[in-house]
Write a protein that binds this DNA or RNA. Sequence first.
DNA 1: CTACAAGTTCAAGTTAACTTGAAGTCAAGC
DNA 2: GCTTGACTTCAAGTTAACTTGAACTTGTAG
Lengths: 141, 141
Amino acid sequence: MLTITDVSRRSGVASSALRFYEERGLIVSERAGSGHRRYPRSVLRRIAFIVFAQRIGLTLEEIGVELAKLPADRVPSRRDWSRLSGEWAKRIDERIAELQRLRSGLTECIGCGCLSIDRCSLANPADVAGRKGPGPRYWLG
Amino acid sequence: MLTITDVSRRSGVASSALRFYEERGLIVSERAGSGHRRYPRSVLRRIAFIVFAQRIGLTLEEIGVELAKLPADRVPSRRDWSRLSGEWAKRIDERIAELQRLRSGLTECIGCGCLSIDRCSLANPADVAGRKGPGPRYWLG
DNA sequence: CTACAAGTTCAAGTTAACTTGAAGTCAAGC
DNA sequence: GCTTGACTTCAAGTTAACTTGAACTTGTAG
């Protein structure tokens, strides 16, 4: 069993973040008699999954939903993990496609001087500026 | 000259956001006798540039720095606009490369079950979890 | 036994990019 | 002249994902 500092060091995720993930139900811990957290090794894989999913652009809430799909009664298998990743590939591909569109826009559209709200489909904010509710806009959605 | 509602409608950016951009020095407005904002048409292009840059992943602060490079004494030319985009292409390419790495990780790494903090370079949070200071982490940096 | 590092909880702070609300001014139509 | 809608400023709220600080307890090395 690992202490919170062990897990933090091995995962690169701060202890405060680990407590936060636990509060959010993304990971769990047992407790030593003292009340200190003790983690099984398997938590490292779970954390790796969380960090990985974050890089892809999922929110912690979405990640929580995905993780909840893992079987609670047994150690997750390869198959369990990989099933979760189905939707993600699509998401990555979409974002890559958008970035590639933006990249051409950079040379073709700004470069040619046509960056115009009226005529340029790439720059037209009406296409992209749709609000996603209050608060900051996220580029990854 | 356009009113703030005109500009909002034509750009897809909310009036409140336009006032916010002005407060941050990203755009400027003249005032009618009444105190109401009046914008020249050229502001639309500037806003298009801001929205475009946001999609690429620049912060408003970075965008402000870029916009400050435009000549104040004359209407910016094609060349002026395109000069700004130099650094950006690199940034887009880097993010695309990362997403492509993540995408292979999705099938190769999670798929094969090797998603391990110890051995998997793709999932190793120590490589990617470096903090960027307090507050939320941004995946786009 | 005494430091002192490491752990705990809980509340409050941080950041970006805005939005929302309050309280008041201005302009246009009837 | 009155209502209605667009506009103004300024302060405070929102969201995600954490971090920081206070106040306190536990574990360990000497």
